[in-house]
Design a protein around this nucleic acid. Structure first.
Lengths: 207, 207
DNA sequence: GTCTATACTCGGATAGAC
DNA sequence: GTCTATCCGAGTATAGAC
């Protein structure tokens, strides 16, 4: 279900005026090594304490930089998402259609089921009450992806390649929903034809 | 995202030949009281130990009947789903269209966000490796709902009310995905027009 | 089979040292 | 701000009493 990234989401931490350097660098360092651990053992069964021990940091110290396990997983998700473009040829992505773009993202995801699984876990966490951080993250993310998808669709409407009697914002929500939902079903039943079904949706929009 | 129930999923426990009575009854009794606790406090922050204490059973005993917290939540989900029909007028459900049916289910869900949240949590759990029980449950469930939806769509195709150049099975997966995905988005952004967007999808299928 | 007792690791919160 | 030490309640596994 993870959906195409949109902006780098560069988030220079909140503490303004001054000593960026020290703390952020340390955090980065810890994160980098934590990512290695996840790469080896998978996020699935890897506890915070295990990660901490493996990278030579105390449990408490790790928690000092990542307020919760969810935050660490979120950082893992962000990192993976950012560096995912390497798997994909981004030529002409500018002129892709709305559905086309999501199909491309889904195709990459099919090669990394663990990423889809992580996404699903985090989204479920975001839906839980009082999940401020994660909730905000995915609310923004969905919003961004929807907006970007709607823009693409509107451009296609202007081109005349797509039905003009449809509300682009609703279409965007629908496309994103279909992409996410199909990836969930595909994880449980790999015989689901992810690309084919999204292709059919694309066809339904054609003028 | 929880999708329309399909069969009562009557699951007379596995132990054949003989003493059904005792253990199952006790389990039912415990479950019934656990449901009350969840009703009061919500499943969200209610621990196994809390539930156990509240219903006058030891922590260990509770675990004896429900092998894990996930299993207990799954039982809660099943129960809620089964008794949900009370919220809904089931007149003429037999002749409903494929999308129409899912819209009806979604409309009920909108009135019980906690149920959608629970569904999302359980599905995410099902996607995790080695989650035998929950995984099997939702794999079957998706399969059933897809099959039922495909049947409805095929009937509509025979009626001529819907495009006949579409593969009903793919359409079914798409409808279910859209419904689930939109409910997720709606939980994070209540301004999402759940019924409206699904209605648009319905319109796309029309002959 | 039903259940108690115990122990283990987990995520997280706290207090305080530096 | 960075981190150690400690403590808590959580989910779960196990052994064994009845």
């Amino acid at each position: 279900m993870p959906v195409t990234p949109t902006s780098p989401d560069s988030d220079p931490p909140i503490g303004r005026t001054g000593s960026y350097s020290k703390g952020v660098a340390r955090r980065q360092e810890i994160l980098d090594r934590a990512l290695d651990v996840f790469r080896e053992r998978g996020p699935e069964g890897t506890s915070l304490r295990r990660v901490a021990e493996e990278i030579g940091v105390s449990h408490g110290a790790l928690l000092h930089y990542f307020r919760s396990r969810e935050q660490l997983l979120l950082a893992l998700y962000e990192h993976t998402e950012t560096h995912r473009s390497e798997l994909r040829d981004d030529d002409g992505a500018e002129n892709e259609g709305a559905v086309e773009r999501l199909i491309a993202a889904a195709s990459v995801n099919v090669q990394m089921p663990g990423f889809v699984q992580l996404y699903s876990t985090l989204v479920a966490g975001a839906l839980e009450e009082g999940s401020g951080e994660t909730k905000g993250f995915f609310t923004r993310r969905f919003e961004n992806v929807r907006k970007q998808t709607a823009e693409r669709f509107r451009r296609q409407q202007e081109e005349g390649s797509v039905r003009t009697d449809l509300d682009a914002d609703m279409v965007a929500a629908l496309i994103v929903a279909a992409s996410d939902g199909l990836q969930t079903q595909w994880l449980l039943e790999p015989s689901i034809d992810l690309e084919g079904t999204l292709g059919m949706l694309e066809e339904l929009f054609r003028a």
